[in-house]
Design a protein around this nucleic acid. Structure first.
Lengths: 126, 126
DNA sequence: GTTGACTCTCACGCCGACGTGAAGCTTTAG
DNA sequence: CTAAAGCTTCACGTCGGCGTGAGAGTCAAC
């Protein structure tokens, strides 16, 4: 498929897809015309990229990780042993982030719930 | 206390503290000299700001929320009823973010755990 | 009075993940 | 054949939360 279709089916802008290639996250083949030709497997790759970006990893880190889960879903790569340290560091970072997010959520919950016992009338919280 | 002490006791740079004031998150009084004078309560305020920033809220949003949990911890403000919508939107956003973080973590876990059943020897995962 | 630590206000720099044209080639539809 | 999509490569712009000096005032100690 070409970039327009991949963009539509993933909801990711063409600019972003080209950016991912520039950063080494995608490696589409090229038609004689120069048009990018994407493999169906790239659909899942793009979703993985988005997941990891959403979790706060940068493109350089993702570029290191992707080969380890790469390609067709069949054979996972040998899992580049030298990456373990980085992976668990990222995992720890994510865990810390989750903790902080939950703490912040608790804070917002406290604010939202507060007036319920400060006011007389029942103010619908949602 | 002055900005240096607040900076030390919170671990936040003076630049950041001045930035928070610029964005309306802190309102220190001023000495005749122009020096900022912070209230002890600002210690907790700064920690709250950091929590919310870590949860992905921007300073503008935090500026809206802060008055609702403001000041001395005694009397919570009337909780600006018009803010409920924004608050629960932020809460939803945080929940979504947590979900995405956990999904990404699961992905990393899968990568980390993968070789254990692909390899013969026991490779220590941590 | 002078040194040194502390503070002040500009104001430009940075970084990462893109957005947004611009100018030109390719492919498809009629 | 021609118009309209769709694609290409530059290359500059953006945004938010600060970092990092620069140049100058303030304050306590000696």
């Amino acid at each position: 498929m070409r970039i327009g279709e991949l963009s539509q089916r993933t909801g990711i802008s063409q600019r972003a897809l080209r950016y991912y290639e520039e950063q080494g996250l995608l490696r589409p083949s090229r038609r004689p015309s120069g048009y990018r030709e994407y493999d169906p497997a790239d659909l899942r790759t793009v979703r993985r990229i988005r997941m990891l970006l959403a979790a706060g990893l940068n493109t350089a880190t993702i570029a290191e990780i992707l080969p380890c889960i790469a390609d067709d879903g069949q054979s996972r790569a040998p899992v580049c042993p030298e990456l373990y340290a980085g992976l668990s560091r990222e995992r720890d970072r994510i865990n810390d982030a989750i903790d902080e997010f939950m703490a912040a959520r608790a804070m917002l919950d406290a604010i939202i719930a507060a007036p319920q016992h400060l006011r007389s009338a029942g103010v619908s919280t949602r």
